[in-house]
């Protein structure tokens, strides 16, 4: 609040006062009072008026400063009316009443949305658990009845399973903090699981694998990590090149960090797009190639989950040559 703006706002009072002073001056003068006496009276009343204005200005300024401080400290700004003191001034009290009404409606609205979002998340979770049962049955059916036909169906089944997992992890990403278990995690066994999951597709697509047999171990959460690595491997398969496709997985250790590299010799990513591949919904040039079915969700989830479990993820690529994703622990 600035003083000149305040005065400008009070201009009507001041105008009335000026007119009143002129009238008073004329009247007192007509009664035969001396100019000096009249000026003294006017001086005193003007002083009084200024004093009132100043006092009012500082009091208002102080009050709003206090409110500003409260709102700054508030995590949810719409709770202002809940935490501020009820003002004793009648004009503020009216404002307060309205603000309180408005905030209350906001609080109700937010609670309603939160509830419905929570219910939706719970529904997704339970849906995923339900659908995993027929997926499990079908996978067992394939294992017990292998043929060219069932093998093909199993590849699709694996794809379905990947999408189902993506939905589950997407729904869960906000709760990573309450849902992880840091322990010594063997990178080899995670990578083996991921390869095993995508075995049919990798063999079918004729992709050569070169996996270091000493990837080592890190302290992290196995489940989230496996999901992240799976997304990266799925991408490497999706964006492979036609001939002699290869995926290399190796690790490196220095003083305080472990680097896990997942490298393919696929179609690569344009330099101009590489910064955006972790953005939600970004599909880029590669995503528009027919048949690639890019959703723009996989890498976004990877980045987000990596941040939450405290590991770094980097991507490097040269078009038509390679893409390397590095996870740094």
């Amino acid at each position: 609040m600035e003083f000149h703006k305040y005065i400008l706002q009070k201009i009507n009072y001041i105008l009335i006062y000026v007119i009143y002073t002129i009238l008073l001056f004329t009247y007192l003068r007509a009664l035969g009072n001396g100019i000096e006496e009249i000026f003294l009276i006017i001086f005193i009343t003007t002083l009084l008026l200024l004093a009132i204005l100043f006092q009012d200005f500082y009091q208002k300024k102080k009050y709003f400063k206090k409110l500003e401080k409260i709102i700054e400290g508030l995590d949810k700004k719409y709770l202002l009316a809940e935490v501020m003191e009820k003002p004793y001034k009648i004009d503020y009290a009216e404002f307060y009443k309205l603000l309180k009404k408005s905030n209350k409606s906001m609080i109700e609205e937010v609670a309603k949305l939160e509830r419905s979002q929570k219910e939706y998340k719970e529904y997704i979770e339970s849906w995923v658990h339900e659908i995993k049962i027929p997926i499990t049955s079908s996978m067992l059916l394939y294992e017990n009845n292998k043929s060219d036909l069932t093998r093909k169906a199993n590849t699709y089944l694996q794809e379905i399973n990947n999408y189902v997992e993506q939905a589950l992890f997407y729904a869960r990403q906000e709760q990573v903090a309450n849902d992880y278990l840091i322990k010594e995690t063997d990178l080899q066994s995670i990578v083996n699981n991921v390869i095993s999951k995508n075995k049919n597709l990798l063999i079918q697509e004729n992709i050569k694998l070169d996996i270091d047999d000493n990837l080592g171990s890190v302290y992290s959460d196995e489940k989230w990590l496996e999901f992240i690595i799976n997304q990266i491997v799925i991408n490497a398969i999706k964006y492979k090149k036609e001939e002699n496709a290869q995926i290399k997985i190796y690790s490196q250790k220095d003083k305080n960090k472990t680097y896990l590299y997942i490298e393919d010799n696929g179609i690569g990513i344009k330099q101009s797009e590489i910064k955006r591949v972790f953005n939600k919904g970004f599909t880029g040039t590669n995503g528009r190639i027919t048949g690639k079915k890019s959703t723009g969700i996989g890498l976004y989830l990877c980045k987000n989950l990596c941040q939450k479990i405290g590991v770094e993820i980097e991507i490097n690529s040269k078009i038509n040559e390679f893409t390397t994703v590095t996870i740094i622990f």
């Binding site: 390869i195 095993s196 075995k199 049919n200 063999i203 050569k208 996996i211």
Partner: peptide, 19 residues
């Protein structure tokens, strides 16, 4: 034994061979 069955069996044992 189908060739693909052998390849898959090998993969299950972390020997990633091709046809």
């Amino acid at each position: 034994v189908q060739r693909l069955d052998i390849v898959e069996y090998m993969w299950d044992n972390q020997m990633y061979i091709d046809d």
